[in-house]
Design a protein around this nucleic acid. Structure first.
Length: 287
DNA sequence: CTTCTTGTTACTGA
DNA sequence: ATCAGTAACAAGAA
């Protein structure tokens, strides 16, 4: 489940490796993962270079040098972007079915970009939720305002956070997961933020007193920053831009720790459903 | 076999 | 009209 820290980790790893490289070839699957017509994509990409990689929330934006067109990639739940140098590519010759998933391409590879130096970028997705799409500057401009304030940016200020919680009857968790309000938080970091703030995720947002909103604001900022520093959480399928696991798993306090002792007070971590998602919390530390 | 997993959206109902 | 809650999507693990 790549969330902001995982997507940012991928962005940083890939930026170091693919920016400025000439795109030589594209291999695209006919699944719905590739949303743009193949011929149109080839026309836009082959012979061009990626000038920069941006990110809004969990959405990656690959800018194409010399044009206003961009490639959007959303990994959704099981998407992966893995870069391989020329020498590390496993030679073909055996079928995908008998091939290990660490070999690339594999059965889940939906797009492959080959650069002029023979290095490659693989876009994998086990389920077919992730997508790759070519959009022009006008369309991208329309997408941007659909995202809310983002932890780690100048727009992430306490006043905006207060406004989000003002008069909202829904749960704290639902607000944190709403990308149009706060961009980049998913199930893992929502639960972890609530734990750090000492607030139950199922609390109604308007019942939070000012000091609680401040605590949650700080908690979100800190959890996301630490997540980025530890290069994301590998819980199921996340790997960074070169296939490495993230390092945040040992820092999780509640997510996927049902029944295990709270790291602060020793109480067994509980799990319930909130905002339609598995929700983990410490019944003692969180009020 | 059933149940559970999640990011986003479309739909439902109040 | 607005807002909140949930089913659906998909495919694999347990």
């Amino acid at each position: 489940m790549p969330e902001l820290p995982e997507v940012e980790t991928i962005r940083r790893v890939l930026a170091k490796r693919i920016i400025g490289k000439k795109i030589k070839n594209l291999e695209l699957s006919s699944t719905k993962v590739v949303r743009t017509d193949h011929a149109v994509l080839e026309q836009a990409l082959v012979g061009q270079r990626i000038s920069r990689i941006d990110r809004i929330g969990k959405l990656l934006i690959f800018c194409i040098d010399g044009t206003d067109d961009t490639i959007l990639i959303h990994l959704k739940m099981t998407g992966q972007l893995i870069y391989r140098d020329k020498g590390s590519i496993v030679a073909g010759g055996h079928s995908f079915r008998t091939q290990g998933l660490k070999d690339l391409p594999n059965i889940h590879t939906r797009a492959t970009i080959t650069f002029a130096d023979h290095s490659r970028l693989f876009f994998n997705d086990m389920r077919l939720f992730a997508y790759l799409e070519l959009v022009n500057a006008k369309k991208l401009k329309e997408i941007k305002p659909t995202y809310g304030i983002e932890p780690g940016t100048a727009a992430f200020v306490i006043d905006s956070f207060r406004t989000i919680f003002h008069n909202r009857k829904t749960t704290v968790k639902a607000l944190l997961l709403d990308q149009s309000l706060v961009a980049g938080i998913g199930n893992i970091y929502a639960d972890e933020s609530c734990f750090l703030a000492g607030i139950l995720p199922m609390r109604r947002a308007h019942t939070l007193i000012p000091s609680e909103i401040e605590k949650l604001y700080t908690a979100v900022d800190e959890v996301i920053a630490l997540g980025i520093e530890k290069r994301g959480t590998t819980f199921s399928s996340f790997v960074d831009g070169v296939g490495k696991s993230g390092g945040f798993l040992p820092f999780l306090c509640v997510y996927n720790r049902t029944g295990k002792p709270c790291k602060v007070c020793g109480t067994a971590i509980k799990k319930t459903v909130c905002a339609g998602r598995g929700t983990h919390y410490c019944p003692t530390c969180q009020k």
